[in-house]
Amino acid sequence: MSSQILINGIVIGALYVMLALGFSMIYTSTGFFNLSHGAILLTGAYVSYAAGALWGLGFAASVVIGALAATAIHVVAAAGIYLPMRSRGASMWIMAIGSLGFAIVSQAAIGIVFGTRTLNIREGYVAPVLQVGEVRVSYIDVAIIAISVVLVTATHQFLQRTKTGIGIRAAMADRDMAQAVGIRVRSLELLVFAIGAFLAGTAGGLYALKGAIIYSMGGPALLKSIVVSILGIPFGLVGVFGGGIFLGVVENVVVANWSAGWVDGVSLLVLIVFVWLTAVRARVRKYR
């Protein structure tokens, strides 16, 4: 494996880590697979595109605006759709299908507003490239890795060090008991949703900045979130981080040696094999 493939894999992996951290936090705290996670990335990417290419804002501002818009929309969905569904007794997979419905709606809305053809946020702009020996890395790639590391570390510190963070972890461990000590679990769940959506929305903006914005990229993004989360959750944050980088590198090796068509199959195969081999009794709170 050449070091170029490795570094390309790490850059993609850094985006997967952001996606999967948000996905797994939402899963462990609210107990359902948020199948609109790919749509969050899509929203982040398209709003970033609108901010950057249509309104002429800078790259950094575009990404932030995209992430905030994605966060707002999906927190409203959580507060207005998913959590009320649970109060009405919906099981985790029913909630998941509800979130999928929302993903379909938001994807269609994006298609109606922006069209479905591939877009480019930085038409004509070529990012400077850092050359280290044989390896070439664009400044955007460096920024992606840096932002991913900063956001993931900040999230981790928030969960570990702050009172609210400890409350979130308590609610993840035992929802009822957390309420019994006076925690407003529902508000914290919405906060987790906001954090998760912000991470995914940022990943969307960065993804748009890195390459083209493809209308159908929400589905694959959801897949990566699921695969990395399942690989990572039993091993905590380090697991999610390692899982994301691992998947990014594996995919790049597959693309380099075989063909791009196998990528999704390979990542899902990784997942199935993992599930088979370990029959994970994940230490996440089971949905009640």
């Binding site: 509800g98 999928l100 419905g101 929302f102 993903a103 379909i104 709606v105 994807q107 269609a108 109606i112």
Partner: peptide, 8 residues
């Protein structure tokens, strides 16, 4: 969109 909306 309508299919998704009906689902939700």
């Amino acid at each position: 969109g309508i299919y998704g909306g009906l689902l939700v």
